[in-house]
């Protein structure tokens, strides 16, 4: 117990000091993205890992948050930072609608409906040009030139989200969520309103993902439908972050976010420019192979299968 607190304090200190030590914009950028993914991966994990409702469409909430911020700046002329306040709320409303449609059915319907929702939102964002500018995308001016404010904001968001997820999972709600995942009928028979608590889980999850989306809009200053509503680069990435780190653990998605950003960037930069150029085009292939590998051999992720991994390395001294 005490040892883990020391480790947490150490990690927190390292993350706070990181941008003061490492001045490179490039590495700061990578850590900012990783921190954003901590939020999204954690949100996905709350819904899928703990509550057992596997979402294939977290891009819906991410994109809704991002577009809320973008449209506020673009159409109403107020700062896109208001999106940080409203992005989460609109994403949660969208989440409620999806939950209302899907949670009356069981099994794979939710997974399917979330994919469909992702595609519907992408198509809407593409075709409703008077609101979203369509394929042109929305561009705003970045507020800060330095990366430091964004870095600390992302850190704050990531820490806040993990704190909330931890709090929720230690509360009564957390036990309801897990009971729904383990056996919905048993949970129902014990008097748990399973539909209500699935929606609660979805609400929290979509809220934080929407916040992350609004942050993305402010930080990148440019969005278009194919980036923020992308099935592969947002929805599938959220799943990967969750399962590679370890589903149904608080630290899993956080670790997964750093691993995934690391892997993605390693391949995007052709293994730091050492490998030939075609390697940089293969990062989607690597993603796919990683999904297959992780599911076959590390179904519970790095954190969940940590004892297994430790044994593997200790066996040959």
């Amino acid at each position: 117990m005490k040892r883990s607190r020391v480790i947490i304090a150490f990690i927190a200190l390292a993350l706070v000091l990181f941008p003061l030590v490492v001045k490179s914009d490039y590495y700061q950028h990578l850590v900012i993205l990783a921190l954003m993914w901590v939020v999204i991966g954690g949100s996905w994990n709350l819904l899928a890992g703990y509550t057992g409702q596997v979402s294939f469409g977290h891009a819906v909430f991410f994109g809704t948050g991002a577009y809320t911020a973008g449209i506020l700046a673009n159409k109403l002329g107020i700062s896109a930072w208001w999106g940080m306040a409203f992005g989460g709320i609109t994403a949660a409303l969208v989440g409620l609608f999806i939950g209302w449609v899907c949670f009356r059915l069981r099994g794979p319907y939710f997974a399917l409906a979330t994919i469909a929702a992702g595609e519907i939102f992408r198509l809407i964002a593409t075709t409703w040009e008077s609101l979203t500018e369509g394929m042109v995308g929305i561009m705003i001016l970045q507020t800060f030139r330095s990366k430091l404010p964004y870095y600390y904001l992302a850190l704050l968001l990531a820490a806040a989200s993990m704190f909330v997820f931890d709090l929720v999972m230690k509360s009564k709600w957390g036990f309801y969520f897990i009971s729904i995942r383990e056996d919905q009928d048993a949970a129902e028979s014990l008097g748990i309103n399973t539909t209500l608590y699935k929606n609660v889980s979805l609400l929290i999850s979509s809220f934080f993902t929407g916040m992350a989306g609004a942050f993305y809009m402010n930080y990148m200053a440019f969005i278009d439908p194919h980036v923020v509503f992308s099935l592969h680069y947002i929805s599938i990435m959220a799943i990967l972050v969750g399962i590679i780190g370890g589903v149904a653990t608080i630290w899993g998605p956080a670790l997964g976010a750093f691993i995934m950003i690391g892997v993605q960037e390693t391949f995007r930069s052709s293994i730091f420019g050492l490998a030939p150029r075609w390697v940089s085009q293969s990062h989607a292939l690597v993603f796919g192979l990683l999904v297959m590998f992780v599911i076959l051999y590390m179904a519970n992720g790095v954190v969940g299968d940590w004892p297994k991994i430790k044994r593997l390395f200790l066996r040959r001294p």
Partner: peptide, 24 residues
């Protein structure tokens, strides 16, 4: 595994790999 949808996730991975191999 904790997640019930493991096989579905696997098919997603397979789909991605097939697409990317074709692109290659």
């Amino acid at each position: 595994a904790i997640l019930p949808e493991n096989q579905v996730l696997m098919t997603v991975g397979i789909g991605m790999v097939l697409t990317e191999i074709a692109r290659f």
